[in-house]
């Protein structure tokens, strides 16, 4: 747990004259789950989109395995993205394809697996992992929000990435599915030694999955620590996350 996988320094981003990210600094180490906490609209999604190169920061550096993302050429960027999974907040399923085709897409297009049986086997494996084996022939429009989220998760993990960026993996799920997804995230981490950033508002999920937590407030990282450390914090910006049920 000493090798830096993702390193962010002095990240700044402004949208339409409004500075969303003012100064974001953090690193993710190998085989670590880092949870990002922050109020809605604080720029958590923007931060991880800068990591994967979907958005370009105004200032600051984002490095993956020591390599600056903005300096990567197309083929390097593609290679990096192949090793990185990204779960979108809104799942972003391809709505003209069935669930099977959605899951097959990264396998056949990116990993270029030609053998149909292999593809089918991995699809079934991934669907089993998120508990939705019977949805394989459905269209995304026929699924509920929570189901779509889980299919999105299956599509993210199906390529067995080394780094995974989860944007609210448990939002919109019932407590039981939520718990299963958190366990799945932990299992993936153990099995494939992945490093992940998990954005969540679900404190139970944070408690289960986090090795370390970073709190973002007004475009800056204001706190860092394990769940137990931050839980004890009395800072008015941090305290409410952990004691949202009200003070004793």
């Amino acid at each position: 747990m000493n090798h830096k996988v993702i390193e962010i320094a002095g990240l700044k981003k402004t949208f339409d004259g409004k500075q969303i990210l003012k100064n974001i600094n953090f690193s993710v180490f190998e085989n670590e789950n880092l949870v990002l906490l922050g109020r809605s609209g604080e720029g958590k999604s923007v931060t991880i989109k800068c990591i994967i190169g979907l958005l370009e920061q105004d200032e600051g550096s984002v490095k993956i395995y020591g390599e600056e993302v903005l300096d990567m050429n197309q083929s390097r960027l593609k290679e990096m993205r192949t090793k990185t999974g990204f779960l979108f907040q809104g799942a972003a399923l391809y709505d003209s394809m069935t669930v099977r085709e959605n899951l097959a897409f990264p396998l056949t297009r990116v990993l270029k697996i030609r053998n149909r049986q292999d593809v089918e086997k991995r699809i079934i494996e991934a669907l089993d992992a998120v508990g939705l084996s019977d949805a394989i022939n459905k269209m995304p429009s026929d699924l509920s929000g929570g189901m779509r989220k889980r299919i999105g998760l299956a599509r993210t993990i199906i390529v067995k990435p080394k780094i995974i960026l989860f944007d609210e993996p448990t939002t919109g799920l019932d407590p039981i599915s939520s718990r299963e997804i958190c366990d799945l995230i932990m299992e993936i981490k153990r099995k494939y030694r992945t490093s992940s950033i998990i954005i969540t508002h679900d404190m139970e999920c944070a408690r289960i999955t986090a090795d370390r937590i970073i709190v973002i407030h007004e475009g800056e990282c204001i706190a860092e620590g394990t769940f137990e450390e931050l839980e004890k914090s009395t800072d008015p910006q941090i305290h409410p996350f952990f004691n949202w049920m009200g003070d004793p």
Partner: peptide
């Protein structure tokens, strides 16, 4: 709905 972004980050 970010489907194009999703395709892009998947490496396709």
């Amino acid at each position: 709905t970010e489907q194009i972004d999703a395709m892009e980050v998947s490496g396709a």
